[in-house]
């Protein structure tokens, strides 16, 4: 891994960086995921679309094990998340190992969730220093670079409460990149933003995609998905209904439910603009 360049584009091999195998997740009676499988290769940008409650967030949170799947396994960058191999068996691993495994993913949340008691710079330094145990000096230098990358170099000293929603989400993107993850997981990164702030965040995400950062993005921004995604998955009721290139899924959906969702969402869009 390169030390100073904030770009993540690296081609180690052609293996999928994320391999989700038949993942199930239930909350009591609610089945949030009913056997989802997907593969993400290095440099791919996967868009998850689908109605609210279809399981997009749950899938993303199962990938980095913020939620433990009730069935199936997730492999990220080679390791089976939440497990460690011991004498030929996979056993549930401890929290320390899980924390290390999570470092191959970076996550951007719908509601930003920046550390409220830390400045923008400190937010971006927290993962490298407290998580990876890097020296503060190096972490600070890199945090400044990442803030510059998202266009917020001059906001380094600002607290989250002093930033607009769009600025907070861009800091959150810098924070997610700070641990040099193999893949970025974004859960509806613009859903909580005022309409005029959506663009600045999507621009940053688009830039990262162009630089070859691997990502999985849950989104309702269909135009963005069409422009940026290499693969689109349409989810409904905890299952993947349809997947393929944006041209296939968004332009010429095979499944009636996909087509219905797309007309519904574009109608909602034209109604607001």
């Amino acid at each position: 891994m390169t030390a100073t360049q904030p770009t993540l584009a690296e081609t180690r091999d052609s293996d999928p960086i994320i391999h989700v195998r038949d993942v199930h997740k239930s909350y009591g009676q609610v089945e949030a995921l009913r056997g989802v499988s997907l593969q993400v290769k290095r440099g791919e940008v996967v868009a998850l679309i689908g109605p609210s409650g279809s399981g997009k967030s749950t899938l993303l949170r199962c990938i980095n094990h913020l939620e433990t799947p009730t069935g199936g396994v997730v492999q990220v960058a080679g390791h089976v998340m939440g497990y460690a191999e011991k004498r030929g068996y996979l056993r549930e691993c401890n929290q320390r190992t899980l924390a290390r495994q999570r470092r191959s993913t970076g996550m951007v949340f719908q509601h930003f969730d920046l550390f409220a008691h830390r400045t923008a710079l400190e937010n971006v330094m927290e993962g490298p220093t407290s998580g990876l145990g890097e020296a503060r000096g190096a972490a600070r230098a890199r945090a400044h670079e990442l803030l510059a990358l998202v266009g917020l170099a001059e906001k380094a000293g600002a607290y989250p409460s002093e930033l607009s929603g769009g600025q907070q989400q861009r800091v959150a993107i810098a924070r997610a990149l700070s641990t040099r993850p193999d893949v970025l997981l974004l859960d509806e990164p613009t859903s909580a933003l005022d309409p005029e702030l959506v663009g600045e965040v999507l621009d940053v995400v688009t830039d990262l995609a162009r630089q070859g950062v691997t990502m999985v993005v849950a989104t309702h921004e269909i135009t963005f998905a069409e422009d940026v995604a290499t693969t689109v998955y349409f989810m409904e009721k905890g299952s993947v209904v349809e997947s393929g290139s944006p041209r296939e899924v968004i332009r010429n959906p095979v499944e009636a439910r996909t087509a219905q969702f797309l007309t519904h969402i574009s109608a909602a869009r034209t109604a607001t603009t």
């Binding site: 929290q95 320390r96 924390a99 290390r100 949340f109 509601h111 550390f115 927290e126 407290s130 924070r175």
Partner: peptide
């Protein structure tokens, strides 16, 4: 969300 964000950054539960 604060502790989830920290976990997502690779912090152990103690950290």
């Amino acid at each position: 969300g604060q502790s989830e964000a920290a976990a997502a950054c690779g912090l152990t539960p103690a950290k």
